[in-house]
Design a protein around this nucleic acid. Sequence first.
DNA 1: GCCCGGCTCATACCAAAGTCGGAATGTGGC
DNA 2: GCCACATTCCGACTTTGGTATGAGCCGGGC
Lengths: 226, 226
Amino acid sequence: MIRVLLVDDDALVRAGLRMMLASASDMEVVGEAADGGEVVDLVERCDPDVVLMDIRMPSVDGLEATRLLRARPRGRPEILMLTTFTTDNYVLRALQAGAAGFLLKHTRPELIIDAVRRGAAGEPVMSPEALRQLIEAVTPRPAAQDAPAPPPAPGADDARRRLALLGAREREVALAVAEGRTNAEIAAGLHMSVPTVKSHVSHILTKLELNNRVQIALLVYRAGSV
Amino acid sequence: MIRVLLVDDDALVRAGLRMMLASASDMEVVGEAADGGEVVDLVERCDPDVVLMDIRMPSVDGLEATRLLRARPRGRPEILMLTTFTTDNYVLRALQAGAAGFLLKHTRPELIIDAVRRGAAGEPVMSPEALRQLIEAVTPRPAAQDAPAPPPAPGADDARRRLALLGAREREVALAVAEGRTNAEIAAGLHMSVPTVKSHVSHILTKLELNNRVQIALLVYRAGSV
DNA sequence: GCCCGGCTCATACCAAAGTCGGAATGTGGC
DNA sequence: GCCACATTCCGACTTTGGTATGAGCCGGGC
């Protein structure tokens, strides 16, 4: 039986996790905390194998709580960070604080359950997005001095590959979008109608499997074409 | 159909991989090489989606071959390193060479097939042992190793100074916006209502003298909070 | 006590973004 | 020539984003 401790300031999230984990017959939730400050005590009392820890919490955040837990002599429990966004480089900081894994909350339930199992077994666990961020953190591109190529940002290869899927006109629109311009401004600048710009944007979103123009901007930015 | 190229000096290993991949109906082996020197040519001819690359090879090793492949303009193919040992810290070097993943040969066949699928989709893939090695590489001391100055993009200081004008919650919203999320997603992720998100976004735009959320994303990106 | 600033939420309204279907053009293959 | 396919363009419609205004809650400073 894998003993799990939930740490999240949102009672709803805890309830959701509890229900999710209940569907796994080999694990049980042995405790819950709403803030990092309660965690150390709770771990002493509940003796969990795995802690699912939110990062953003009112007083003591997940990173600090992780450090506190890892400062204890014994190796257990394993700590899996569980958060919603990946923007800040929490990933690196969480790992450095001693987390055994990093998951996103929108990960499919069965994968979270699987991750808890792996975590309990001492395996490291990472959501794809978090892993990508970790990899980017360790692959700073050395400045290419010989090539006429402009500065390659992390992940630039992939970004460029995907931008290459676009038609010439579409690419122009994508670049304009990445400058924060509105469709009307783009239309004026590129001598086309607003509906046409929209059409291009729509095609770009489809081709690149994106959801909105902000993501276009980020992709272009990563490709270094700004 | 996922097109796979096998690169390994051992014909037996190649045969084994070929058989393994044959059990997946959505992939086909389009070529094989026994040395890194043949890879670039072969990629041109076979146009694979994924290269399964051994590290230890007679003349040109897998790391060098990976660098050669990634030096090409187009992003494809994705390169997955496939090796037997984790003793040397090949993991970091492979990732820095441009590999999209790192697998151990003794990984269970279905996991390798799954990894190829993920790799082809652009997801990073790591065997648990390799991931552990990667994590260890970033946990002791991240600062001292290679980049004394993390690339200070032009305007990063200014961007950070302006972000500092925001309140805590506003900053969180800004970061989420910079991930390309919709207001509804942000509301869900940050436990607030959509009107509140809009309110924050509006305040952010006013404070930072911006016009739309794309520009927020660009500012956050410039500030280096990616 | 009071006020103030930050955070929260609501309603309504207008502007911008994105979807859908359709159509004209051009290019390469048969 | 003809077809298939990609690119470019457009307009009508739906969804999302952003503004404006007002309000309630809390914690800190005076």
